[in-house]
């Protein structure tokens, strides 16, 4: 976009002029496109939640038992971390739009730091689970050996690692995008008058947050009432 794009004019039969929308510099088009992209993410995670619900209704008690054993303290902390990161991201965009480029950059860096913190906590959590023998590929999550968990728990943990893993993958991509965004701002390619990239990355970050809003209760909270690990509910 080195030089300004000048839209063409179409003239109707009465001589009235109509501006032709070009693909260049179409802010709304960029926004619409990104929302459509986010809908594909909604469908993907929607399908995974569907799988989860399907097995929840097949193996309800196993799911509650497994859920009761997740680390709610770490998971909850991460929920709050993401919440604040959504705030910093939003404020950053607001600063960009009101012309405070420097402030915007500070806010983006803050978001990056919070995102990294999230990953760190997630790492601690996974390590802890690994040391307890619960991890993809370990005996507990395979069938037919002496450590095998019940079916429902295998499925619960399988989906837990899959979905938090994919969510974490989105966080990593997000960090990459934010670093790229800072570079583009430094290069003058993103500015208060041309901030579609910033706008869309902020949307992306909200989406990542949004997914966590469901991942968190689905895995960590459904069994939270079972302080005994569900034993008292067995009929």
């Amino acid at each position: 976009m080195s030089h300004e794009y000048v839209p063409e004019i179409a003239v109707d039969r009465d001589g009235k002029k109509h501006e032709v929308q070009g693909w260049q510099g179409d802010f709304y088009g960029g926004k619409l496109g990104f929302w459509l992209f986010m809908l594909t993410e909604v469908m993907m995670f929607g399908a995974m939640f569907l799988v989860l619900t399907y097995y929840y209704s097949l193996h309800t008690q196993d799911f509650l038992d497994a859920s009761a054993h997740l680390n709610r303290l770490l998971g909850g902390t991460n929920t709050v971390v993401l919440l604040f990161s959504a705030l910093t991201m939003g404020l950053g965009l607001l600063k960009m739009r009101t012309g405070d480029v420097k402030g915007a950059k500070t806010m983006i860096w803050a978001t990056i730091i919070l995102a990294t913190l999230f990953l760190g906590i997630k790492g601690v959590e996974w390590t802890e689970e690994y040391t307890h023998g619960v991890f993809l590929g370990l005996d507990a999550l395979q069938s037919g050996n002496e450590h095998s968990r019940p079916f429902g728990q295998i499925l619960f943990y399988g989906m837990y690692f899959t979905m938090t893993g994919l969510h974490g993958f989105h966080i990593i991509i997000g960090i990459g995008l934010m670093i790229w965004l800072v570079k583009r701002i430094d290069a003058g390619k993103v500015s208060p008058h041309h901030h579609i990239l910033h706008f869309n990355i902020a949307l992306y970050w909200d989406l990542v947050h949004l997914i966590w809003v469901f991942v968190f209760p689905y895995f960590y909270m459904i069994g939270a009432g079972d302080v005994t690990g569900g034993a008292i509910h067995g009929h």
Partner: peptide
């Protein structure tokens, strides 16, 4: 082997 779709893991 996350168990999804495999009847031997439920």
């Amino acid at each position: 082997g996350i168990g999804i779709f495999d009847p031997s893991k439920g």
